[in-house]
């Protein structure tokens, strides 16, 4: 579904991605793990076209989207929940969800809304509340729900566990699993929380210093001693 082929991305002179290959197949949850500054978010942003890949190709459903402006991705079927949640703080929960549905067929709006509320009942309770007054976990739920309102085929999630309590993280990850299973949605998940991400994902990639160093199924990577040492021991 999504092929990232030999992508190099630069910030000025600094090469943040040094030839990255990642494939996401339809119906999968694929996760990309790595430590701070490895280039995970950069890869996700490059898929979205800001910054642009200096070399390499990004292909979505057979179409080259490397040079597409960010705002055109939604109409192609890619929705993104950006790092740090980025909900619209002064708008209500309901208005935030409306913004997500801006580019999709209004006929589906009510059904999609019901579905989001069914998935995240907390959002329904707080639908008229300003998004800025929600807790971190609720904001993350809203960010995911907002991305889903665009009815994407591929959902890009950037660190949904960022700054959240372990119990809340579990709730968010359960929701991602539900989205994948029940809605057959393909998910590309960038995470620092390697343990949860690998448990959830069908396949995973490990990124170190702008390169993919390891790839495999979620279970394989979880069992890998190197990964255990680098990302899993000490935590959880």
């Amino acid at each position: 579904m999504l092929q990232i082929q030999g992508v190099h991305t630069f910030y000025g002179q600094i090469e943040a991605l040094k030839g990255v290959d990642v494939t996401v197949n339809e119906g999968e949850i694929v996760t990309l793990i790595g430590s701070n500054g490895a280039g995970k978010t950069t890869l996700l942003m490059t898929v979205c076209g800001s910054p642009r890949a200096a070399k390499g190709k990004i292909i979505f459903e057979g179409e080259d989207i490397t040079r597409l402006p960010t705002h055109e991705l939604v109409t192609r079927g890619i929705a993104q929940s950006p790092e740090g949640r980025r909900v619209f703080p002064r708008m209500t929960v309901y208005e935030n969800l409306q913004m997500g549905a801006l580019r999709s067929d209004p006929r589906y709006f009510n059904d999609d809304l019901e579905m989001s509320f069914a998935m995240f009942p907390r959002l329904k309770e707080r639908k008229d509340q300003r998004a800025g007054t929600l807790s971190g976990g609720e904001q993350q739920m809203l960010a995911i729900a907002r991305a889903l309102m665009a009815r994407p085929r591929l959902l890009l999630l950037d660190e949904p566990s960022l700054g959240l309590a372990p119990l809340v993280v579990r709730g968010i990850f359960d929701a991602i699993r539900t989205i994948n299973r029940e809605k057959k949605m393909t998910v590309f998940l960038v995470e620092q929380n390697a343990f949860h991400a690998l448990k959830l994902a069908h396949r995973g990639y490990v990124m170190v210093n702008g390169k993919i160093t390891l790839a495999g199924s979620g279970a394989e990577l979880l069992a890998n001693p190197e990964i255990r040492a680098a990302y899993l021991e000490g935590g959880h």
Partner: peptide, 10 residues
């Protein structure tokens, strides 16, 4: 409120 979020929403 947020220009980056706007872009990601199309």
């Amino acid at each position: 409120e947020d220009e980056i979020a706007c872009r990601s929403l199309g």
